[in-house]
């Protein structure tokens, strides 16, 4: 051990003096074992293939808040599309090539008088087809139980302090709908195109615990670089 000559003990610490983190893998749970058994049987019996399962997982992993941001950016610039999004969110997404799945999407619009925020108090319903997997905090009991009771306090903890004159509308995804917030377009973005606008639209602004980013001093040039790098 490199530190053995010291007169105090570094037992259980890394060479740099930090505690080792426990491995993240333990024995399989009952349901994990069941999932593996079921998957192997389906493959063995020729019902599906390992490649098909991998493809499906990759398809799910490809979805990200950038998809939702493109939908919102278009709604900011195309009034007809915005009307469709508010009337039939699933149809609007489909028209842009985002497969909405069996669950229906409802878009709720933030205005100068109304701020919307989304939760699923019963489990973790989330517009996965449009935003990808939910953030871990979205699934916590703390968020789910508090945002329906003290939404302003929760939003303040996310850094969003709303004036009393703005009505907060909490949307509990209790059944067959999924929700996305259509945030208000920030001032000073009149000259930006849809791609540059999409880069301002954060995941949190589409859940309603945040608002879109403000454009930086030279947004257009910078955004082009970011897009090209993807």
């Amino acid at each position: 051990m490199p530190h053995d000559h010291h007169d105090h003990s570094h037992e259980g610490l890394s060479p740099s003096g930090h505690p080792y983190r426990a491995d993240n893998d333990g024995p399989l749970t009952y349901w994990q074992t069941m999932e593996i058994a079921m998957r192997e049987l389906l493959i063995e019996k020729g019902i599906t293939t390992a490649a098909q399962i991998t493809a499906r997982i990759e398809e799910m992993d490809r979805r990200s808040p950038a998809d939702g941001a493109m939908v919102i950016a278009r709604a900011w610039t195309d009034p007809e599309f915005k009307a469709l999004l508010l009337r039939d969110g699933s149809a609007a997404c489909k028209s842009m090539g985002f497969e909405p799945g069996v669950l229906r999407l409802i878009a709720v619009e933030n205005t100068p008088d109304v701020h919307n925020v989304i939760v699923c108090t019963l489990c973790s319903c989330y517009p996965r087809n449009l935003l990808g997997l939910p953030p871990d905090w979205y699934k916590t009991r703390a968020y789910r139980s508090r945002v329906v009771k003290e939404p302003r306090k929760v939003l303040a903890e996310f850094g969003l302090i709303l004036p009393d004159a703005v009505q907060v509308r909490v949307h509990d995804s209790t059944a067959d709908m999924r929700y996305i917030v259509l945030p208000a377009r920030p001032a000073g973005t009149e000259d930006l195109d849809q791609t540059a606008l999409a880069d301002l639209i954060t995941r949190d602004s589409m859940i309603g615990v945040g608002v879109p980013s403000q454009p930086t001093a030279q947004p257009t040039a910078q955004k082009t670089v970011t897009k090209a790098a993807r």
């Binding site: 329906v148 009771k149 939404p151 302003r152 009505q167 909490v170 949307h171 509990d172 209790t174 059944a175």
Partner: peptide, 19 residues
């Protein structure tokens, strides 16, 4: 209506889907 006098802001609202 939901929280009575414990409501954080009585005029805020909560929407849910009910069968």
């Amino acid at each position: 209506e939901v929280w009575g006098k414990d409501a954080e802001n009585p005029g805020d609202t909560l929407d849910a889907e009910i069968y």
